[in-house]
Simulated scan of single mutants.
Amino acid sequence: MRILLNIIWLLFGGLWLALGYFVAGVICCILIITIPFGIASFRIGVYALWPFGKTVVAKPTSGLGSLIGNVIWLLVAGIWLAIGHIVSAIAMAITIIGIPLAVANLKMVPISLMPLGKEIVDVGAVGVQQGGAPA
């Protein structure tokens, strides 16, 4: 089921969202001081291509640098990316088939607002990290 949802996602919005993240990543990497934002943007772009079966978890080693970077990101790009995800979610929720895609889009809003200090992992890996059986 995840593969089918990922294919539908890719065709009906994931490719454009990922492309936006990749363009932002290239721009951030050209400006040397914003390379950490570029790397985060590339990570989210890959997540935006194939989101089903993956989840976002907080890195335990993130600190004050991530917080400061997230505030800057929020003001410069995070708000616009979150608005893009919300608008895309509304458009996808119009059809019954699009409702899971809209939910996935809304799940991407928090990482689009504050990407630093977060890690994208497989859903099964989260259960193993927490000491439980894989989901």
Rank of each mutant, 00 (worst) to 15 (best):
Thr61Cys: 05
Cys28Leu: 06
Gly14Tyr: 01
Tyr47His: 15
Ile35Met: 08
Ser62Glu: 14
Phe37Ser: 11
Ala24Ile: 15
Ser41Leu: 03
Tyr47Lys: 04
Ala40His: 02
Ala40Ile: 01
Phe37Leu: 09
Gly38Ala: 00
Leu31Arg: 10
Gly25Leu: 07
Leu17Cys: 08
Val23Pro: 04
Gly20Glu: 08
Pro60Ser: 14
Leu17Phe: 07
Val23Thr: 13
Thr34Ala: 05
Pro60Gly: 12
Arg43Asp: 13
Cys28Asp: 15
Val46Gln: 10
Ile35Lys: 01
Gly53His: 07
Gly53Ser: 05
Cys28Tyr: 15
Ala24Glu: 14
Pro51Cys: 12
Ala24Phe: 10
Tyr21Cys: 14
Ala58Asn: 06
Val56Met: 03
Cys29Gln: 09
Leu15Ser: 13
Phe52Leu: 09
Ala40Asp: 09
Ser41Ile: 04
Val46Tyr: 14
Gly14His: 05
Ile32Arg: 03
Lys54Phe: 15
Thr61Arg: 06
Phe37Met: 12
Phe52Pro: 02
Gly45Arg: 01
Gly20Phe: 01
Ala58Cys: 00
Gly53Ile: 10
Phe37Trp: 15
Leu49Lys: 05
Val57Ile: 15
Tyr21Phe: 15
Phe52Ser: 07
Gly45Cys: 01
Phe52Tyr: 13
Gly63Trp: 03
Thr34Met: 03
Gly63Phe: 05
Pro60Asp: 15
Gly14Lys: 08
Cys28Gly: 03
Ser62His: 10
Leu19Lys: 02
Phe22His: 06
Trp50Phe: 15
Ala48Leu: 05
Thr34Asn: 07
Val57Arg: 08
Phe37Gly: 02
